[in-house]
């Protein structure tokens, strides 16, 4: 589904991603872990098309289509979804109006007729239930005055509504209390199918107890320095990242 080959990118001339290779297939959940500043969130930003990042080398395809040449909205319409680490508050734009606009623009891109009011409402209700998102939030301004946990739950609600192929969760667990973490994880687990895929970016192994990944990758200094299964996450929890840093530096010297 997603294929990243030798991806190099940076901001204002500073190199951040230094040759990422990653293959994600339908039905898989990949976790990306790593110390602060290793490039985890940058990878998410580059994939979603944040304009401040400049890609200097490499290819990314989503179902054989060149992702890097698309505008952020076209990437979303092709089925990419980024759950933001810091969702933006937009006073004056109602949550529901925003979702309706997004959904219908995506549908129009796929040559589908816009959803009528009744079907939209039905879909909203169904997805709210699925991700346990309180209906009272849907008519409020987008994320305005939401707590950190409510914002993250809103991200998962949007994910449920837009039904992307590939979802990237950028530190969705950070700042969540255990109840919110459980709700968010349950939501993701319910949305998992053999046709979609998830990339979960996190600092902590704790989230991976709730959303069990098929693969775990460790990002360090702009590269994936180690890949493995869930066991790798446990090992990292126990030993920290230092042993990997040393290993990575050794490899560089060789």
């Amino acid at each position: 589904m997603l294929s990243i080959k030798n991806l190099h990118a940076g901001v204002e001339g500073k190199k951040i991603l230094k040759g990422i290779n990653l293959q994600v297939n339908a039905g898989e959940v990949h976790a990306i872990m790593g110390p602060n500043g290793s490039g985890k969130s940058s990878l998410a930003s580059v994939l979603a098309g944040r304009e401040s990042y400049e890609v200097t080398e490499g290819d990314v395809t989503l179902d054989e289509k060149e992702l890097l040449e698309m505008s952020p909205e076209d990437r979303a319409r092709e089925g990419l979804f980024l759950a933001f680490q810091y969702p933006v508050e937009i006073p004056g734009v109602s949550n529901i109006n925003f979702l309706k606009t997004a959904l219908n623009e995506i549908r129009s891109y796929r040559s589908l007729a816009p959803l009528d009011a009744k079907s939209f409402l039905a879909l909203t209700k169904e997805k709210q239930k699925l991700v346990e998102f309180d209906a009272k939030f849907t008519n409020r301004s987008l994320n305005e005055g939401f707590s950190g946990g409510e914002k993250k739950r809103n991200e998962i609600f949007q994910l449920a509504m837009l039904e992307p192929k590939l979802s990237i969760l950028d530190e969705t667990d950070s700042g969540l209390d255990i109840d919110a973490l459980r709700i968010v994880s349950n939501g993701v687990n319910r949305l998992r199918t053999d046709k979609n895929a998830f990339i979960i970016i996190t600092h902590y192994q704790r989230l991976l107890e709730y959303i069990v990944p098929d693969f775990v990758h460790v990002l360090y200094d702009g590269r994936i320095v180690k890949s493995g299964t869930k066991a790798l996450a446990l090992e990292l929890e126990e030993k920290g990242y230092d042993w990997l840093k040393e290993e990575a530096q050794l490899q560089e010297q060789v």
């Binding site: 952020p72 909205e73 979303a76 319409r77 606009t101 997004a102």
Partner: peptide
């Protein structure tokens, strides 16, 4: 905010209008 809206599939012009 503009990027957030666009990342949900909303065109740049609609996002600006919103």
């Amino acid at each position: 905010a503009l990027f957030y809206l666009r990342s949900r599939g909303i065109s740049e012009s609609s996002a600006r209008s919103l």
